[in-house]
Simulated assay, not measured.
Amino acid sequence: MTKPLMGQAEIADRLGVSRQRVQQLIGRPDWPTPYVTLAMGKVWRTEDIETWIRDHRPKDTGPEEDTGDTTLGRRHGRKRDDA
Rank of each mutant, 00 (worst) to 15 (best):
L25G: 11
P32T: 02
Q8E: 14
I26W: 07
E47R: 08
V17S: 07
D60N: 10
E47L: 00
G27L: 09
P29W: 09
M40I: 03
G16M: 05
E64P: 05
Y35Q: 10
I53T: 07
T37D: 07
Q8L: 03
V36G: 04
R14H: 14
A9P: 08
R19L: 06
R57W: 07
L15Y: 01
Q8P: 09
D13Q: 12
A9G: 10
M6S: 09
V36Q: 13
T37K: 04
A9I: 04
P29H: 14
T33L: 12
E10R: 08
A39Q: 13
D60Y: 06
D30R: 00
G27M: 08
L38Y: 04
I11G: 08
R54K: 14
D30N: 07
G16F: 03
P34W: 01
E65D: 10
P58Y: 02
I49V: 06
T46E: 13
G16P: 08
E65S: 11
Q24W: 12
T33A: 14
G62R: 10
E10A: 12
E50N: 12
Q24Y: 13
R28T: 04
Q24P: 04
I11P: 05
P34A: 01
P29G: 12
T37Q: 08
Q8M: 08
L15V: 00
L5N: 09
R45C: 07
V36M: 09
V17A: 08
I11K: 04
Y35M: 05
G62M: 09
L15I: 00
K42M: 05
T46R: 04
Q23V: 07
Q20Y: 12
R28C: 06
D60M: 05
G7W: 02
H56M: 01
I11Q: 06
A39N: 12
L38N: 04
R21Q: 15
R14M: 13
Q20L: 09
W44H: 04
Y35R: 04
G16D: 11
Q20A: 14
P32V: 02
A39C: 05
L38S: 05
T51H: 01
L38Q: 08
T33Y: 10
P58F: 01
I49E: 02
Q20C: 05
W44V: 00
E50T: 03
Q23E: 14
I53N: 09
T33K: 14
D60P: 01
A9N: 10
A9R: 12
T51S: 03
L38E: 11
G41E: 10
R54M: 04
M6W: 11
G41K: 02
D60R: 05
K42N: 13
W31N: 07
D30F: 00
M40G: 11
V43A: 06
V43H: 01
H56R: 12
A39F: 07
R21P: 02
T61M: 10
G7C: 10
D13G: 14
D48W: 01
R45E: 14
R28V: 02
